[in-house]
Design a protein around this nucleic acid. Structure first.
Lengths: 207, 207
DNA sequence: CGCGCCACTGAGCAAGCGCTTAGGGCCCGT
DNA sequence: ACGGGCCCTAAGCGCTTGCTCAGTGGCGCG
């Protein structure tokens, strides 16, 4: 990803959503869901933030749940792509794990508003939508687990319980979205770098 | 804590709440909040689980929010006492950190229903109640940070950023409540032991 | 026995919820 | 000029919500 692309994405992480009104609604919904939670957010609040009447929401989305579903889908696909990029990169398990944790944790800090919604409001999805999103999460988990397995097989890492350690690493990164604040003392880059170091220690990389 | 005491506590972690009807309501509320979230839970649901009419709830609690406040208070005080016990124990930083993480993570696994409510539904509290609970969390954080600081000062640990590492360790333990399931393959004891090992690696304690 | 007490219920209120509907303005090709 | 389609709004429907209140049943006590 070039610098221009990344800057464009930061300016609007929902650039892929069209038309403009639908994008404004997604952006408003993600802010409202992150602040108050899905169930405490009203469709009137979402529409108000997007500068429309409550009825306008239903031209672009069938239900409030569909908004959450769209947000969750886009967010989890982005998270999966980040993990895919790190897992598929050249280099040994240590480099790939460092890169995976650094970019994954950094994304959860930088996009903590979106991340909070997609990671902590999943239970509000309907059963089928939940199952679909759970599939994306399982793929992300499998990619990270494979990196840790590779490092353990090659002897670069010393890990007793690969699935358990994978779970802990994912949990650590995801939970960044809960506590991270843009007003806090840490930048997303710093969080990513620190978390990568912590995780390399967790797996016993480089003695 | 003796075995009999611990068994009694596991049988009813709300033993301190009286009278019986008030305890049944707290127990029902914590299960409902954990399953659906605070805002998605109705007072009718809580009362129904406790075997009463909706109106009976208001004899024991002024509002639904007060129920959450009571649950949060009791839960966070218990978490604080666990951390106090580990921090005040005899032994070096390594032993105290191992004990702190083992018991803290284990509690979040064993009481994952309660823990989920007190850690992830905090935002639903009113401003004053939130501030009070936040004070308890700050005290817990300070105790853990002191252990890590002690180990760093003594040279047993090698930690660059003590507050940041403390935050990561707490985040890791707390997030157990989100993913832990009694039907899963791991027991709370196993989670506590594994997490203690992982954290000792994170702080660079001697293997 | 009879009286007061109080945990509890049945019924229901005002408010707010997700969502629908009828209709209006604007832009398009012809 | 004008008809059709697309967005959008004002109004409001049916329902559920948190919470209230008058009344009731059963228990303890004199």
């Amino acid at each position: 990803m070039g610098a221009a692309e990344q800057a464009a994405e930061e300016r609007d992480e929902w650039a892929g959503v069209t038309p403009d009104a639908a994008r404004r609604l997604v952006s408003a919904a993600v802010r409202a869901f992150a602040e108050r939670g899905y169930h405490a957010t009203t469709t009137r609040d979402i529409a108000g933030r997007a500068g429309m009447s409550p009825a306008a929401l239903y031209i672009h989305y069938k239900t409030k749940e569909e908004l959450l579903y769209r947000i969750s889908g886009i967010g989890h696909e982005k998270a999966l792509r980040i993990m895919e990029a790190a897992a598929g990169a050249e280099g040994g398990p240590t480099e790939r794990l460092r890169d995976a944790v650094r970019t994954f944790a950094r994304w959860h800090a930088e996009h903590h508003t979106t991340a909070r919604v997609i990671q902590y409001e999943l239970q509000a999805l309907g059963a089928e939508h939940y199952a679909e999103i759970a599939g994306l999460r399982r793929r992300t988990d499998r990619l990270l687990r494979q990196i840790i397995q590779d490092g353990t097989d090659s002897g670069e890492f010393s890990v007793d319980d690969v699935p358990g350690t994978t779970l802990a690493v994912l949990s650590l990164c995801v939970d960044v979205a809960r506590w991270f604040s843009a007003e806090g003392p840490r930048t997303p880059d710093e969080v990513g770098a620190r978390y990568a170091d912590l995780v390399l220690r967790m797996v016993g990389a480089r003695p």
